[in-house]
């Protein structure tokens, strides 16, 4: 894969170019967030304008974005952690442990993902109301697990299936318990997959809207709900500058988070390489 120097440079350049292409709408979002609302829809579009921080200062405190951001962090991190643990274990069972009926259960778990979310929102509300659990973080975390666990399980099954079988055989000879093998051998070597899947789960929980709309009302409201609220402003027109500002702010923590876990992703690689 090491190819020529030129090939390598082309590849790096290509990667950067594609990345820039994908980031262009994001750039446009950030740019719009600094525009006054009247400058957002000009014809032709304005690249140069008098920037304003109005959307960040006035609107953000107004729509209680910091509080909602905290809710989002709690819910996304909670749902991400629960589902990565439960899902990775299930994925391991499916790919590596011979279990009668496990394949069926795995398929059922995966297929529970086929239920349209609209079908779940109202009954979940009814159950949560019965249990006095409306507008709580834990309710959203559990609701998000319903779609995260099947994903994590299936993705991790794929990663585990790609591992050489000799790993476990060696561990078994060393007298490792099944769970010990999983924890000490399989998890470290699968770290890139685990991290990637974890990032993915957190992101999905981060941007989920429908359940959050239905299951929260004040205390546990997340950022996407706040965004939907700003977007629904029928009074004076949708404030796109504010929407873009909230959009920009929501993106930042996730980028920092994924930059931080990137280190482990690479580390996982070197660990795995030495152990394999």
């Amino acid at each position: 894969m090491r190819g020529s120097r030129l090939g390598h440079r082309l590849r790096v350049g290509g990667g950067v170019f594609v990345c820039a292409l994908f980031l262009f709408p994001v750039f446009w979002m950030v740019l719009t967030s600094f525009k006054a609302p009247r400058d957002a829809f000009t014809r032709p579009p304005k690249l140069f304008f008098t920037p304003t921080l109005e959307s960040y200062t006035a609107y953000l405190t107004f729509a209680d974005v910091p509080g909602r951001m905290l809710n989002t962090v709690i819910v996304a991190a909670g749902a991400g952690l629960v589902s990565i643990v439960a899902g990775a274990m299930a994925g391991y069972a499916l790919s590596r442990i011979r279990l009668r009926g496990a394949a069926t259960i795995g398929a059922v778990i995966l297929l529970s993902r086929g239920v349209p979310p609209i079908a779940l929102a109202v009954p979940m509300f009814i159950v949560a109301r019965q249990l006095d659990l409306l507008d709580r973080h834990i309710t959203l975390i559990l609701a998000y697990c319903t779609f995260l666990i099947p994903y994590v399980m299936w993705l991790m099954r794929g990663f585990f299936a790609a591992l050489p079988r000799e790993l476990e055989e060696a561990a078994a000879i060393d007298g490792c318990s099944r769970f010990g093998t999983f924890l000490r051998i399989i998890v470290p070597i699968s770290l890139p997959g685990l991290i990637a899947t974890f990032i993915f789960s957190v992101i999905l929980a981060w941007e989920e809207l429908l359940f959050a709309l239905v299951l929260t009302s004040r205390e546990a409201v997340t950022v996407p709900v706040a965004v939907a609220g700003i977007a629904a402003d029928m009074t004076s027109g949708v404030n796109w500058s504010a929407l873009c500002a909230v959009g920009t702010i929501t993106v930042i923590p996730v980028v920092i988070f994924s930059l931080a876990v990137q280190k482990w992703l690479i580390q996982g690689l070197s660990d795995g390489a030495t152990k394999a």
């Binding site: 994908f22 994001v26 996407p224 965004v227 929501t250």
Partner: peptide, 11 residues
């Protein structure tokens, strides 16, 4: 690269 996934769908 993950940013497009994070932007709220409405935005």
């Amino acid at each position: 690269f993950i940013i497009p996934m994070v932007v709220a769908p409405v935005v």
